[in-house]
């Protein structure tokens, strides 16, 4: 089979109109604490269960975005939403009361870029005037579904990552103002043969490398042309592997590279091992931190590449490996 290079979509009429992030306590105690729109101090916010709490995070993130743009839900043409739970329940239960046209999406932790890319495409094509993309993850609900009960004393190995309790939402429309969505590349499913549930970064780094290389090739850009290359949640292990993979091509991205998983938490004081992860990780760091800086022009050209480990505990127990995926979205201030 020939190597499929895919296409990079170029957008001329898509901007992020408003953005918001809602995070839990630990996320707000990280290095970028105070930059988020709302903090749920007990991670539960009065809900009965963790799944309901995650749905509430998403509902609140969308609520903030609507408030910032002074819009009511009926003015939204389409919402792309996703999360990590089975049947994407945080999205469907979280957003059902808004009565907005809804498309649920799943790309594991890459979902935020997937939503951003699709929202941009819908607005750019003129099908929708205003599109929302929102994702969430919650440590406690993810832990229950993928790992162990919360009170179980399981030991986390050093390569494991900590699911972020967070949600981020963007409202995309053609405002003609920054941050502009300039281009996007859809990732391919890349299975690197990793089968360690506790090493998601390694499972995703190959996909990030492939998508980023293809995007830059199609854009005829070098890494140096970007202010930053931001990956979703590769964590420490995955980030090093990504730099290694580029290093093999003689390309040095280390100085330009930032990883949301390494940014959201302070690894020296918070016990998150290899870093943060989850759909809400890159969503909250983008919506809480980077989009502001692109809007103000402090960052001019950012290549954002959210990475996802398309992991299923069933497939792993059947002896399978963990396929990775990564989607890239290029955001500019000009």
């Amino acid at each position: 089979m020939d190597y499929c290079s895919g296409k990079t979509f170029k957008y001329a009429h898509a901007s992020v109109e408003s953005f918001a992030a809602v995070v839990g306590k630990a996320e707000n105690e990280g290095p970028y604490g105070g930059e988020f729109d709302e903090v749920i101090e007990d991670n539960k916010g009065g809900c009965d269960t963790w799944e309901q709490a995650e749905a509430m995070f998403q509902r609140k993130a969308v609520g903030h975005v609507l408030k910032k743009s002074e819009l009511t839900p009926d003015k939204i043409d389409l919402v792309f939403a996703g999360d990590l739970l089975n049947q994407c329940v945080s999205s469907s239960y979280g957003l059902k009361e808004y009565y907005m046209p809804f498309l649920g999406i799943y790309g594991a932790c890459s979902t935020f870029a997937e939503g951003l890319l699709l929202a941009g495409a819908m607005v750019n094509a003129g099908y929708a005037e205003r599109c929302i993309a929102v994702t969430s993850s919650h440590f406690s609900s993810a832990e229950r579904q993928f790992r162990f009960p919360l009170n179980y004393g399981g030991v986390r190995p050093p390569t494991s990552q900590w699911t972020a309790t967070a949600s981020g939402a963007v409202l995309v429309s053609d405002t003609g103002r920054p941050p502009f969505i300039r281009a996007a590349t859809v990732g391919k499913i890349e299975d690197m043969g990793i089968n360690d549930l506790n090493n998601m970064g390694a499972a995703m780094a190959g996909a990030a490398y492939d998508t980023l290389s293809r995007h830059m090739k199609h854009m005829e850009a070098e890494p140096q042309d970007y202010d930053l290359i931001v990956t979703g949640d590769l964590g420490l292990v995955g980030s090093q592997l990504l730099c290694d993979l580029f290093g093999r091509d003689g390309v040095d991205i280390e100085k330009l590279h930032k990883d949301c998983g390494l940014m959201l938490f302070d690894r020296s004081t918070q016990d998150v091992h290899s870093g943060g992860s989850g759909c809400g990780c890159s969503a909250s760091v983008m919506c809480g931190h980077f989009l502001k800086r692109i809007e103000s022009g402090e960052l001019k050209r950012v290549l954002f590449c959210a990475t996802g480990a398309l992991m299923s505990t069933t497939m792993i127990q059947q002896g399978g490996t963990i396929p990775g995926i990564a989607h890239a979205v290029e955001l500019t201030s000009y």
């Binding site: 050093p158 390569t159 043969g193 990793i194 090493n199 190959g206 292990v237 592997l241 290694d244």
Partner: peptide, 21 residues
Amino acid sequence: MNISNSEYGELTKKRSPDSKM
């Protein structure tokens, strides 16, 4: 991909920290 899974596995092993025994 321009790297085989076994080669990538080696690289992963190198980059994955062991438990501090």
